[in-house]
Design a protein around this nucleic acid. Sequence first.
DNA 1: TTGTAAAATGTGTACGAACACAATACATTT
DNA 2: AAATGTATTGTGTTCGTACACATTTTACAA
Lengths: 341, 341
Amino acid sequence: MAGVSAGTVDRVLHKRGRVSDDALQKVNKILDEIDYKPNLIARTLGSNRTYRIAAIIPNPEQDPYWAQSRAGIRQAEAEWAHYNVIIEPYIFDLYNKESLKEVADTAFKANPDGILIAPIFYHEALPFFELFATSLIPFVLFNTNIHEVKPLSFIGQNLYQSGRVGAELMHMSKQESGKLAVLHINEDLDNSVHLLEKERGFRDFFAEKNPSFEIITLNLENSEDPSFEQKLMEILVDPKLKGIFVSTSKASSIAASFLIKKNKQGLVLVGYDMLEENLNHLRSGSIDFLINQNPKRQAFLGINYLADHLVFRKTAPSTDLLPLEVITRENLQSYLDSGIH
Amino acid sequence: MAGVSAGTVDRVLHKRGRVSDDALQKVNKILDEIDYKPNLIARTLGSNRTYRIAAIIPNPEQDPYWAQSRAGIRQAEAEWAHYNVIIEPYIFDLYNKESLKEVADTAFKANPDGILIAPIFYHEALPFFELFATSLIPFVLFNTNIHEVKPLSFIGQNLYQSGRVGAELMHMSKQESGKLAVLHINEDLDNSVHLLEKERGFRDFFAEKNPSFEIITLNLENSEDPSFEQKLMEILVDPKLKGIFVSTSKASSIAASFLIKKNKQGLVLVGYDMLEENLNHLRSGSIDFLINQNPKRQAFLGINYLADHLVFRKTAPSTDLLPLEVITRENLQSYLDSGIH
DNA sequence: TTGTAAAATGTGTACGAACACAATACATTT
DNA sequence: AAATGTATTGTGTTCGTACACATTTTACAA
């Protein structure tokens, strides 16, 4: 149509240079006129290349939360296998910050076409993003946002709002004023910034809606700690305590088990995530609500955004904040039945 | 590899016949050995055909609920455009059963490759499914299930469980016993079967968990009906009334507006769906909870299943019951932000 | 005018299938 | 044995693009 060969059109389309101004004009004119859209199918067939995506995540065996992320990656991998997209997992130790560095380094040296990473250790992860950027390797963050870097995409949740939802649920089920506890169980100080965001949302909600509630914070480093039980007990004995908001997924079932052990009833317990143990507590009534952070879907989407970017040149959303799903006893099954939705 | 030509392999792969037993054996042996998986990309390129999907739905302009379905179809259409999948909408009158028949007939005569239908009029829709089946046109039902027919897929929700969730939410926020009203506003008798499913779930929950609640049912045919206000008022004046469970999306905001108009406060109102009006009531507090039926996603998935079936020969789930999402004031925005998720 | 390198352009094949059509093999009839 | 028909098998083109490579044009110096 433009009176030039396919080769020239190809050069224009891919900006490979080596095209005269004259030809460039002619081709672009036609391209514009016919509103040319490349056939993505033919493109992937033609280029016939394999894309490798490195997935840098904590060891799934150390925490069921991360096992769900792993599952999401697996699912995405299956869907993209047809397009010659390969996922290479790089697993680091959840309790060892140095391990993240080593693993990320290995991943980088493998020179992948894209990187998905859960940068749960801020300081250790930070230097890598420059590396990725200068090497022009697109990378996607999930679970933990790091605002300074500009990833292809971040996938997670609004933590502040998440805390507000937790507060709302608690307020809903306990109208009479009293005492509420925010419980953090976390061995990592860096990560506590994120947990504090949830707490801030939680407190803000009550400050606005019902300041008569007294809210206390309980920071526990480790559930295996000998002082753990004692510290938790101090708070639980207070008869005015109406509810507990637990800021992490693993801790939710720990807290619930503790309540059962101490035979404390009538407390509202709001926790996080659909881990097997949490679900059991939800079913039996020792946990009242779970807010679903959907680690599976987060990782799934992360791979999707990368693959779509690589294979189809689609633009990924710079941030994708997943809905704050409220899981109760009655809607639980519907969530389990519906796959990743 | 099997010592035969590509043509013979093609015949074996597609079961076109005209292959000797000998060749069949040889090809199948190799196919099995190398675990042959067709390249779906190359297949769509090679076959180079266009698929037409007929979408038979109520007029989106008559109801915001159906407007959301329409939006879901649009979104799916955009994603499948690359694969030469075309959606042809067939719109029928939400308030005219005959219209469904006419429109479905037209759709069928256009001889589409697949059909998505919201069969809200049971009797009128029923005969078409035989037609579709004998013509070997795959069809997907959404919103309303019709058990007798065997569609490629049904997409909807567990209505009984949905009622239970509504009850659970109400019970959560009103511990003191009292009276509760189930409100149906619906001009269609057939459809009321579905609403009754929700009611059954609602009642069952309280029967199990707290039988001391008295539950009454209010069936209203039309909000424009002159007796509408009077009938509703009769119930509202009862000081023991603690909450209202509204079984349809459109009615949710009608009920909320009514409460505001009559200045009734302190009632828990549980309704359905993220329609604009409902969201406003949720934000202002006149609606407490919405259960999201996700009409947009239902239709979106319906097209997806059909297109995946046609283009990639993927097997669709015979039924896909979407999660019963609980929308509150605090998590509302997160749902709005996250697209179709 | 010629030579030469760089710039610009064109050509051909591959990607992995689908499908139309040609060609061959085999059995049966004459 | 030739002719015919049918069953089986093979070949070639196409889909829309990517990319390697060949070819042509241009600019400039000798």
